[in-house]
Design a protein around this nucleic acid. Structure first.
Lengths: 144, 144
DNA sequence: TTTTAATGATACCACATTTGTATCATTTGT
DNA sequence: ACAAATGATACAAATGTGGTATCATTAAAA
């Protein structure tokens, strides 16, 4: 069970990297070589972020991406929503048919409450808070 | 994002039904007609429960399944583990390569903590508690 | 003893989602 | 003109989920 899919994770890494070079344009090629994210996949992800107004872009030589939203107002939950849709623990179990079976009915109350708790947890995480926790260092790669 | 997959859900429904007829053998055919779970899929699910020692079975006419584990000691987390594997929010994001990227590293601590909380929640739910909450009624079908 | 109703074992399959790849057009700085 | 970047879009592989199909075996009942 995945809370965060690969595209969300890649997007977070890319955004963290870009966030540390404000006002500079960062090319996808640069993100690829620094972060090791598969290039075409990364391209697609950046375009999605662009369409959602998270980053701005510039074509042509010297072009790339830069943050549009300040890190303090860019939340994990936003990125999750963009790549994974509205956060929900009981997706398609209660969506179409409400209460298709007794165990669902019984569990529903529990699951909704757990979901609420998880949501509140996720709400508290911003890109800024992620960066400040690690001091913005990208040194972890050397540990492999 | 699904906390509970369909086979887990079906298994729970079947177990709740069986739990209410202790000492009787309940045939898969009966579960199918009462609960509307696709018959061959249900068969497969019951065999899995059998292999894990949750239910006993009897072949031949008049055969079927019955609970081996008392409802008070049969937990939701056990059924989830059987059908979905060990519960984990960050499956395959940190499994093979520990810390493949900085955002994962940063998020890891958070996710592990959320996972712990969710686990504790799930631990508290037994089949017995589910049954007692609804009074053991299966009447919800009439509401569709 | 034959029939019937049940499980045991196992292989297969359809579909959706995830995780990418490939291609070509367009833009922009040198 | 050329090189380096994004924009748009179609395609594809791998995996997971949800479900079928088939045949063998067992046991009760007729």
């Amino acid at each position: 069970m995945k809370l965060i899919t690969r595209d969300t994770d890649y997007a977070l890494r890319a955004l963290c990297f870009i966030a540390k070079e404000p006002k500079k344009m960062i090319a996808a090629r640069k993100l690829f070589s620094e972060l090791g994210i598969p290039y075409p996949f990364l391209r697609k992800i950046m375009q999605v972020l662009k369409h959602h107004g998270i980053v701005s872009s510039c074509k042509g030589q010297g072009g790339g991406f830069s943050l549009l939203v300040p890190t303090s107002r860019l939340y994990l939950k936003d990125i999750i929503r963009i790549f994974q849709g509205e956060f929900s623990l009981n997706e398609c179990l209660f969506k179409k048919k409400i209460c298709p079976g007794v165990s669902s009915c019984m569990l529903r109350r529990h699951i909704l409450s757990w979901e609420k708790q998880l949501k509140e947890n996720i709400e508290s995480v911003s890109i800024e808070s992620l960066l400040s926790e690690t001091g913005g260092s990208f040194e972890e790669k050397k540990n492999n």
